[in-house]
């Protein structure tokens, strides 16, 4: 990024991107205030109102999005699922960014064998389908929420590692990092106070690119019954459950499905837009 892009006159934000941003904001609000927003508890059963369709399709105002087989309120489950899925995706993306950036900096700092090792790991990560690796780990270790988040956190770190390494090497070779180094700064100071803030915007764009992928991965695994476990619920988990009632109660499945699609679509749109504005070289 050059100074010119930073001071370039603000372009108007496309309408679609604005809508996407509004959607993301809504989702974040829902995730934050899920406990206040949900009308019922996620395990609260209303046995007299089992498989009620959503309002407008023969349902009542009591259960806006209908209920499932056990009479649990779909809207409440949806709200809590959004919270869990967003939590996992945020946690995982943050872990991936932290892990990848650290490895990238280590590679740039030590060069030599450390760098070759990191590059090898990046190659490995990029050449193996992550779903298979994730499934293997789950098979060996069993499932728990912290482990699951940590595992999702291994997704996409190589993108951050590549960026951090490339930019750090460039800055160490000529620019400000070399200048600060010869002032006598410690590596910690160079990397944390100078390099990190300077490459943060690029890293954030990279994170917006992997965020929807993590959402898809999480919901896919949960759909398969290998991710978030009941009684906890997540978007993929709900789809997996709703699949059993595809013919009788399609709303159980359609509600979380549309949230997944709208959210990944929105984040992708905003991410693409950010990338075009901030750093078109990123892939």
């Amino acid at each position: 990024m050059s100074a010119t892009t930073m001071t370039a006159p603000r372009q108007r934000i496309p309408v679609l991107v604005l809508i996407a941003m509004a959607w993301i904001a809504t989702i974040l609000m829902v995730a934050l205030f899920a406990e206040m927003l949900r009308p019922y508890g996620i395990t609260a059963m209303d046995l007299r109102a089992r498989l009620t369709p959503p309002v407008g399709f023969g349902g009542t105002i009591r259960h806006l999005l209908g209920t499932d087989e056990l009479g649990r309120d779909v809207l409440s489950r949806l709200i809590v699922s959004v919270r869990i899925s967003v939590l996992i995706a945020f946690g995982a993306t943050a872990i991936a960014a932290l892990f990848g950036t650290t490895l990238g900096f280590l590679a740039a700092h030590f060069r030599g064998l450390v760098e070759q090792g990191v590059l090898m790991l990046i190659d490995f990560q990029a050449s193996m389908p992550f779903l298979i690796v994730a499934l293997s780990v789950l098979a060996f270790f069993g499932n728990s929420l912290p482990l699951f988040i940590a595992l999702m956190g291994l997704y996409g770190w190589e993108r951050h590692a590549r960026i951090a390494r490339g930019l750090a090497i460039a800055a160490n070779a000529q620019g400000y990092a070399a200048a600060v180094r010869q002032l006598g700064a410690t590596p910690g100071r160079i990397y944390l106070r100078h390099l990190l803030p300077n490459i943060a915007s690029t890293l954030i764009v990279a994170a917006t690119l992997s965020f929807p992928e993590v959402v898809l991965l999480e919901s896919g695994l949960s759909f398969l019954g290998l991710g978030v476990q009941p009684p906890m619920t997540s978007l993929g988990n709900m789809v997996g459950y709703g699949r059993e009632y595809l013919t009788r109660a399609p709303w159980i499945l359609l509600a979380p499905s549309s949230i997944i699609v709208m959210t990944t679509l929105s984040v992708s749109l905003v991410g693409d837009w950010l990338r075009d504005r901030l750093d078109p070289t990123l892939t």
């Binding site: 919901s219 789809v239 699949r243 595809l246 499905s257 679509l265 992708s268």
Partner: peptide, 28 residues
């Protein structure tokens, strides 16, 4: 964009809903 923001399980289930459940043309 739809191709990679719509997860395959959602697409698959939607296809089932349409072609197997509603229209009954294909097995699910």
């Amino acid at each position: 964009v739809a191709g990679f923001t719509v997860p395959s399980f959602v697409l698959g289930l939607l296809l089932v809903l349409l072609f197997a459940v509603q229209l009954g043309w294909l097995p699910s």
